[in-house]
Amino acid sequence: MQTLVLRLNPGDDLRASLDSVLKQGGADAAFVVSGIGSLSGASIRFAGAENAARIEGDLEILTLAGSLSPDGSHLHISVSDAEGRVFGGHAAPGCTVRTTAEILVAVLPDWQFARTHDPLTGYAELNAVCRSGRTS
């Protein structure tokens, strides 16, 4: 396992920045282990919702975790607003960094991640294959 420590800058889109990590490094599998920082607004898809909700204003990233594959990411985030209310769910495009985002990514060079349609869930789900033949 290799690790990357990322610092995103004001105006960066959180999801787009993480989606580009594998493209830049030539890897096929990674996990976001931890993330903190601030956003100037967020798009979060709540559990069971069809579309992302838009949350405006200054937000603190409390947690960020997920998997990264060449086919796209699956990221969960929780944020708090200026009144301390907490919102969480799937991080969608449109989570804009306000001051910084500090993110720890674990790159898994022995693994290849892909997202394939799962008829049971109806979503593109993670398909993890170990190149060395080990099973997960």
Results as ranks from 00 to 15, higher is better:
112 Q>N: 13
65 A>F: 06
48 G>L: 04
135 T>C: 08
27 A>M: 14
69 S>H: 08
110 D>L: 12
111 W>N: 10
76 H>A: 06
121 T>I: 09
111 W>R: 14
4 L>C: 02
31 F>L: 13
79 V>P: 04
83 E>D: 14
93 P>A: 13
10 P>W: 00
97 V>A: 07
80 S>D: 03
124 A>L: 14
119 P>C: 01
45 R>G: 03
47 A>S: 14
97 V>S: 07
39 L>W: 00
31 F>P: 03
40 S>E: 07
133 G>W: 02
18 L>V: 08
133 G>P: 02
41 G>I: 06
7 R>M: 11
100 T>N: 10
135 T>Q: 10
3 T>N: 07
42 A>Q: 01
29 A>V: 11
92 A>I: 01
105 V>A: 07
76 H>F: 09
94 G>Y: 06
78 S>T: 15
27 A>P: 05
75 L>Y: 12
117 H>Y: 12
81 D>P: 05
15 R>G: 09
114 A>W: 00
113 F>M: 09
39 L>G: 07
108 L>F: 06
78 S>M: 11
120 L>E: 15
49 A>W: 08
30 A>P: 06
83 E>R: 13
44 I>G: 06
94 G>T: 06
8 L>F: 11
134 R>D: 13
109 P>C: 10
75 L>E: 06
91 A>N: 01
72 G>W: 14
26 G>M: 12
93 P>D: 11
92 A>H: 11
128 A>V: 05
51 N>W: 04
90 H>S: 01
55 I>W: 00
84 G>M: 02
2 Q>H: 10
61 I>L: 08
85 R>C: 04
124 A>P: 09
98 R>G: 11
55 I>N: 00
87 F>R: 07
77 I>P: 04
16 A>G: 02
93 P>L: 13
35 G>Q: 06
113 F>N: 12
111 W>K: 13
6 L>K: 12
108 L>I: 12
62 L>M: 06
110 D>E: 15
94 G>K: 04
28 D>W: 09
53 A>Q: 09
36 I>P: 01
106 A>K: 12
42 A>I: 02
73 S>V: 11
47 A>F: 10
107 V>L: 15
111 W>G: 14
105 V>H: 13
98 R>I: 01
66 G>E: 03
44 I>C: 05
109 P>F: 08
3 T>F: 13
92 A>L: 00
22 L>I: 04
20 S>N: 11
2 Q>P: 06
1 M>G: 08
51 N>Y: 05
20 S>W: 03
23 K>E: 12
116 T>P: 03
44 I>W: 06
112 Q>M: 11
79 V>S: 00
83 E>T: 12
21 V>I: 14
48 G>Y: 03
131 R>W: 03
92 A>V: 00
52 A>T: 07
41 G>P: 02
11 G>C: 05
6 L>R: 10
84 G>E: 02
126 L>F: 03
40 S>R: 10
39 L>H: 00
117 H>A: 10
86 V>N: 03
100 T>S: 14
48 G>S: 07
126 L>G: 00
10 P>I: 07
108 L>H: 10
35 G>Y: 09
93 P>M: 07
14 L>R: 05
92 A>Q: 12
76 H>V: 03
99 T>D: 15
83 E>I: 04
81 D>I: 02
23 K>L: 13
50 E>Q: 09
30 A>S: 08
27 A>W: 15
39 L>V: 02
